[in-house]
Design a protein around this nucleic acid. Structure first.
Lengths: 208, 208
DNA sequence: GCTTTTGCTGAACAATGTTCATTAAATTTG
DNA sequence: CAAATTTAATGAACATTGTTCAGCAAAAGC
């Protein structure tokens, strides 16, 4: 029965077509302008068709969310060759921050928006997030075992580090760092530099 | 001219009436169910009336946002009596976290949602946020001057601490910590404990 | 008492996510 | 190959949303 195989393949291709169009539209025009009608028009299908491939908009967001995680995981993977775990940990932080600045909309999808997580609750867990987090966790674990860091609780340390960079990045993405513009510093105050410098300081502080 | 004074007062009262109804509705039914028609019905006015007091929904969000900041500032103010700045810094963190867990919707409004910041761009800056942040900043400054902390850059330290707790709290609010449920830990894994313990660890680490 | 200003109305508009009866095409069956 | 059946896609329709605006009634000014 080659036919049902082909059908399955076509179904996946169609799903991918929709997701690609959605991502392109999302990156081009932003969150609010990403509409199902717009996506449908872009791929030259009727709006209702999307519902044959996705239960609702949340599920489409989830698919985009997974795609975004693959992009970040690629960046992380490029660091596996670094032998010194402390060095790797450092780079990991900077890659994470750089990714957020380069792809703010994707970061939103991955770590801030509610939508993709609604779809997750009804399906399997948050595997893509888990996978990326484990990269950090494993590196921290290695540092802990080699006693390169202060403290010995891998869980707490990894979580704290993630939270630290996520906190900085998400405050920036949500314009909460505009606060620093008023603090007497120069007008076009560089938030990216503030973040990177602060992370650098914290990492130094945590070294054994 | 007592009349225009009364008018001005009535205008403010009406604004407050709308904001109160909006907050009540927001806390009762959540972000998505907060609709202008719903608010109008609640205060027994026509939908269009709200636009006589607020330019758009974002501006209403901004007013709610300011109200929320007053609530947090009250909590912070209760800590002014603590003399030891390091102790105050500790408590500050826990009050912040507790506030977020007790009032997740308000926290959203204050630090995660985009809406209230749109209204800010067109008006004066983010004064309410600035005020609350300065509370933290001043406490850190005091610790730095008394050499109670490692490091001497008040700006970096205060920003890092804010980011750390905000990161933890916002990851939790956006269900990104569900990841830890799969990590083999117990099912009803206590996120609040994880957060508070991690912050505790980090604070110890930063003590001079 | 007439005119002007003000506050409020609620119908109307455009846009959204979502559903579903209907149609067209592909596949299976006889 | 023709008929029957299953599948894919349509696009009009529905309920909601934020927002606007011509009209209207009451208050204020003269």
């Amino acid at each position: 029965m080659g036919i049902i195989q082909r059908r399955e393949r076509e179904k996946l291709e169609m799903r991918q077509l929709i997701v690609s169009a959605a991502i392109k539209m999302y990156l081009d025009e932003g969150y609010e302008k990403l509409t199902l009608r717009g996506i449908a028009k872009r791929i030259e299908y009727a709006p209702g068709t999307i519902y044959l491939y996705f239960k609702d908009k949340d599920e489409l967001f989830h698919a985009m969310h997974e795609w975004a995680f693959e992009r970040l995981f690629e960046k992380f993977s490029a660091l596996t060759h670094i032998h010194d775990p402390l060095d790797r940990l450092n780079k990991l932080g900077f890659v994470y921050i750089q990714f957020a600045f380069d792809n703010p909309e994707l970061y939103d999808l991955m770590f801030i928006l509610n939508e993709p997580m609604c779809a997750i609750k009804e399906q399997h867990g948050w595997e893509c997030g888990f996978k990326v987090y484990n990269f950090l966790r494993a590196t921290v674990e290695e540092c802990v075992q080699k006693k390169l860091l202060k403290g010995d609780n891998t869980e707490f340390i990894a979580f704290s580090m993630w939270s630290l960079v996520h906190g900085m990045v998400s405050l920036q993405l949500r314009n909460r760092l505009d606060l620093f513009d008023k603090l007497g510093v120069s007008e076009g105050f560089d938030k990216e530099l503030l973040i990177k410098s602060s992370v650098e300081m914290m990492l130094k502080l945590m070294k054994a």
